[in-house]
Amino acid sequence: MSSVTVAMLYMLFALGGVAVYLALPGGQRSARIAGLIFGLSAIAGFAVLAAGHLFGEDVSAVYFCILAAVAIFGAGKVITHPKPVYSALYFVLVVLAVAFLMVMQEAEFLGIALIIVYAGAILVTYVFVIMLAQQSGASAVDGRAREPLLAVLVGFVTMAAVVSQAGHLPGNSTAMVDAPDAALARLAVADGIPAVDEPGEADDEPLGGSNTAQVGFLLFSQYVVALEIAGLLLLLALIGAVALVMKRVPRDVPVAPAPPLGEIGKEVPPF
């Protein structure tokens, strides 16, 4: 990446950060509109920056751009939408867009697993909980961000730092360096869940072919400790949740005696 490109990237991230800060719920209407405009211009800037590298090589880059734009737009809406239900639904949109990005990177298993786990289970539970909690309308806490400036600063500085390091990622290619968004997407894959196509790993395996088999093989060979720890963590969380909600009914405390049979209903006059 040329230094001019990197500088422009940082500027775009700054613009995006300002946009998100302005658009956070609780602000003034004019500020939120300004945030929307800033955010759109930041996305457009990314598009212009990436356009030179993407087009001309492959038609599928068009899909990539559309999906990436949808994902970024959705992510911005998750943060800035004042209604929690809509936030959760935009989260679903982000998950779907990112899942399709993964499918485009030939990581079908990860993509569909993301949909099943996130969109199909976790976010449904979110929506469920929000619906239950919002019976009497939105609470005042939902109307504003808690630490808007700090959160935005930390988030976007981290993102910029990550992108500036994209060139040093394992398994990078020139396409990844030139397309920061793709690197981001790839990074999201590499973070937490091991990437399928790490150099020298999957390609050398005799399994070949099936994406799922490769993921499975990696999970149970190289990353088996991480997998077990993750499983243990979930189990602990499960036990903790049960321990939190379980109401212990003491056995020896006598229950209030039921009224004698003849008395049941006697206090209620018939019609």
Partner: peptide
Amino acid sequence: LYVLGVGSL
């Protein structure tokens, strides 16, 4: 998995 994923939506 595709069928499962779509079904879960």
